[in-house]
Amino acid sequence: MVGALARVSLLIAMQYRSDFVFNGLTGLLRTAALVGPLLLVFQHRETVSGWTGPEATLVMALFLLLSSMTGALMEPNLGAVVEHIRRGTLDLVLLKPADAQLLVSLSRVEPSRLWDLPAALLLGGWALAQMPAPSPWGVIGAIIAVLSGLAAMYGLWLLAICTSFYFVQVDNLRFLLMSASEAGRWPLSLFSGWLRVVLLVAVPVGVVTTLPAELLRGRGSWEMVATAVAVGTGFLVVSRLAWRRALASYTSASS
């Protein structure tokens, strides 16, 4: 089911093949520009807030992974749902015999954003090679944290989609979410206390970027893994509930 949906979205996107190649090139240039500030910082300092250059690069790589996932899978769907609701074509989507949340979550995919993945792997690989080898527990914890964080971010975007059932003009919410997650490019310890909590619990970028990096550089603890799992499941459950409420209000509003 998921495979079939993804394939259709992929085909739509691949219709514009030259765009696909073009977006890949522009994506690489954008990544290069992202790394710029990192180079500047560590030209002046050995460590910042206890983070070395490679460690901060690892955070940046994880951020790229996240942004390519949100860009490819989550953000386009928010736009798609807003459009569906405006044009009244959401009915057609909901009539298909499958879980509506799944249909809506995968109704549009932007594969060109996956071009950020090679850059993320390259940066992450370089960073890990510069650091002492992480412990097996660290690696397992980091993987759990990344997956939980991605799930949490998915929940956040689904919540944003839900709001489009009540307010039509939520395109702009997209900008706000994107810019809020920008802060995740940097280790959370740079930020003051309350902002750190926000970036872990409200806009849970930190769960994908900083927590796994902490685990991989050997400063992790099992509490971190527990936090990640809690935030991930929390967002999944809450967004699922919100989705069902939104759906109920949608059908009652249009009939």
Partner: peptide, 24 residues
């Protein structure tokens, strides 16, 4: 105006950068 305010608030990257350079 509502969209405008969201747009304006979205351009908050200088604050993130300030946090970084402040730490540096």
């Amino acid at each position: 105006r509502a969209e405008m305010v969201i747009w304006i608030l979205s351009a908050s990257l200088p604050l993130v950068m300030l946090a970084l350079w402040n730490a540096v």
